[in-house]
Amino acid sequence: MSAVNLISAESIKLFSTRSPWWCNLLAMVLPVGFATAAVLSWPTDVPISVTEVQMGYQFGMMLVLVMAALAVTTEYRFGTMRTTFQAVPGRSSALLAKTALVAGVAGLVGLVAALGSLGVASVLHPVSDLGLGTADELRAVLGVAPVFVFSAVIAVAVGLLVRQSAGALALLLVWPMLVEPLVSVIPTVGEHIQQWMPFVAADHFLRGERSMIADPVLSPAMALAYFAAVSVGLLAVALVVARRRDA
């Protein structure tokens, strides 16, 4: 069974129902909408930075998390995961194909969202010199793609472990929005632990010194590597669990 066939099968699955289309569309529209709102509320004579313009990536990320988790949990919900495992008894190859497809789509969505945000902002705010000239600017814009890719990997892994839409989505939305930001509240060690939270690390990669980490240990590039490692590690655990459990 070649990877191409399995990925092709997964893409028929993903694009033959409506919700992934909506999730992906919104994941592109919301960040652009946020960029528009940010620029319009910004004073017209003060330049806005690329990082400010890209702040809305988090909305897109939430929707990518939803899209990727649902790609797994709806299969459990409707029993098609059993049919999948019946057709591909090795299981891991089918699940890796799904991960590759979903993560690839997420990366494209991230790229479109980030470039769209930048484009809209440059048109609406000509005073700012918005571009991809510096390393910080490159990371803030093009970096959204890999962040979405690894976010999708995390969501697939959580979907495989939880196997249930409500639980998986609650976890995936509450974790980056509430748990990680609040870790710094823990006395003494909180500040130090927080930068090792995966989504905080991803944010550090995108926004550099503007992120919430006061005294980062990792460079932005290393923060992305760390985020990727966490997602791949989680996926590896999920694949082992999925192989062992009854379908």
Partner: peptide
């Protein structure tokens, strides 16, 4: 009932055939 309710019968068989 092991089919996605919003997926057409043909799409259901197509992905399975592809695997």
């Amino acid at each position: 009932k092991w089919v996605h309710p919003n997926r057409s019968a043909r799409a259901h068989l197509r992905w399975l055939a592809r695997t």
